[in-house]
Computed example of a mutant assay.
Amino acid sequence: MRLLVVCLGNICRSPVAEGVLRARIEASSLRGLIELDSAGTGDWHVGEPPDRRSIANAAQHGVDIAGLRARQLAAADYRECDWLLCADRANLRDVRARAPKDATAQSALLLDWCGTVADGEIPDPYTGGPAQFEHVFQLLDRAADGAIARLRRELQLR
């Protein structure tokens, strides 16, 4: 199964989500069964590392995202991924509006898909401080538990 986490610029929310989910998947029975990536709907940060505050906050929790580089959502993602998991409703609207006619990927809000918060959004911490980055990490940490449970059910694993 291939999952793509999507936010606006791919430097705050989606790389942290990718890092947290990857760490959980690698430590579970799902290791080797899930492909994971992240992207942004915008192209402002393509090729850049995650925001330094995201890197620092994730590192405080033992998650290394420093090697990730921002990229923009591509038409191929709609065919190559199973799920496009969006940080907020604006991202979800953009993802759905850009879908090519031959798209096969499904799209959803990440927190809703994980079963954490129905119709829930991950707030963009970019203009905030350390407390906002920590809040995003905590949301994604809880969401990772739900993602693992869902993926195990879907792949019929324990």
Rank of each mutant, 00 (worst) to 15 (best):
A75K: 15
R89P: 04
R52N: 13
W44P: 14
G32V: 01
Q60N: 15
L36T: 02
I34M: 01
A87K: 05
H45Q: 15
S38H: 09
R71I: 02
D94R: 09
L68T: 07
D37N: 10
L92Q: 01
L84C: 11
S38Y: 06
I55T: 08
I65H: 03
K101W: 08
G32Y: 00
W83Q: 09
S28C: 08
N91Y: 03
A39E: 01
P49S: 15
R96V: 03
R71S: 09
P49I: 13
I34L: 03
R79E: 11
L92W: 04
Q72W: 11
D51T: 12
Q72S: 12
L84F: 06
D77Q: 09
W44I: 06
P50M: 05
D43P: 14
G42R: 13
R98A: 10
P100F: 00
A23Y: 04
P100Y: 01
P50H: 05
A59H: 12
A90V: 11
L85Q: 07
V95H: 04
G40K: 00
D88Y: 05
V46K: 01
T41R: 03
L30Y: 02
E26S: 09
G67M: 10
E80A: 14
R89N: 10
S28E: 08
G47Q: 09
Y78I: 03
D43C: 13
D37R: 14
L85K: 06
I65N: 03
N91A: 04
D51W: 06
R24T: 01
D64I: 02
D37M: 07
A74P: 12
G40Y: 00
Q72L: 08
D94A: 15
I65R: 00
P50A: 05
V63H: 04
H61W: 11
D94G: 10
A56F: 07
R24L: 00
E48C: 13
V46C: 08
R98V: 07
A87E: 05
H61F: 13
A90M: 13
L30A: 04
L84P: 07
A70P: 12
K101L: 12
D82T: 07
R79Y: 06
D64W: 00
E48A: 14
R93Y: 11
R96F: 00
L36M: 07
D64C: 03
R31V: 03
A56W: 08
Q60W: 12
D77K: 11
D64T: 03
W83P: 02
I55E: 10
W83E: 08
R24D: 05
C86H: 10
L73G: 02
L68P: 04
